[in-house]
Design a protein around this nucleic acid. Sequence first.
DNA 1: TCAATAGTCCCATAATATCGAACTACTGAA
DNA 2: TTCAGTAGTTCGATATTATGGGACTATTGA
Lengths: 124, 124
Amino acid sequence: MSLLVHPSTENITLVGLLGALADPVRLLIVVGLLKGQGCMSCAEASPCPGIAKSTLSNHFRMLRQAGLIRTTKRGVEHRNVVRKDEIDALFPGLLELVVKLAEKESAENRPVGGDGGWPRSVGP
Amino acid sequence: MSLLVHPSTENITLVGLLGALADPVRLLIVVGLLKGQGCMSCAEASPCPGIAKSTLSNHFRMLRQAGLIRTTKRGVEHRNVVRKDEIDALFPGLLELVVKLAEKESAENRPVGGDGGWPRSVGP
DNA sequence: TCAATAGTCCCATAATATCGAACTACTGAA
DNA sequence: TTCAGTAGTTCGATATTATGGGACTATTGA
């Protein structure tokens, strides 16, 4: 059963948000949500080829737990929206800048994330 | 032997930087470096009680691998500095904003990071 | 009622983080 | 030179976390 627990605003932390954004898939999801509008299906939200459904579900759960998105059931699917107003109040400028930098990075031919160099990509 | 490998600027990614900052200890280290100046000992850099020396060493390695800091040997200790100019060129405004938000968070009595709510702090 | 769809949950496996202990490198005495 | 002390890294074991397949739940529409 999905209870769709969301943290209250006082439990949203900067480290939590950064961690939620520190994954290529999740970053693309969030940028997509912010540039488009609230998105429907998980699969729809992400330009993710060959990622298991359960993994995608986990990514959305992580975004939810970090307080980045709010998920509501709408019929058979889940509607995810970024908690923009709340996050802007807590951490003004963060979402805007991340979106801008992600777009800058991809515009410079450096695929957003890629493997992200995170975690674990450079030797000792 | 420590080779102190640093990624070249083209291998510094947004996801990598966010991941490096997505830890309470590392965030405090980076903020400390940016607010103070290049720091000497790992132990000195971090206001970290009861964190194992090897763990701290790993945190510095992660910051290094993400391209956030540059480490040079100076005598018996390692000198760590934030690669500010390079990161500012790649991702303008990121470091400044993160420092500002971390300070805002702690000013609001919400200890920066805490356990950070990341990873894993809210139930299903 | 039944099939189809959207997502979650559970499990096993793989990848990471943490920390103690051993080790390396450098410094500054004696 | 030798030796003790300091700063960090590396290694091994353990614990935590992510991934993906498959089963399961809930909702919709025929």
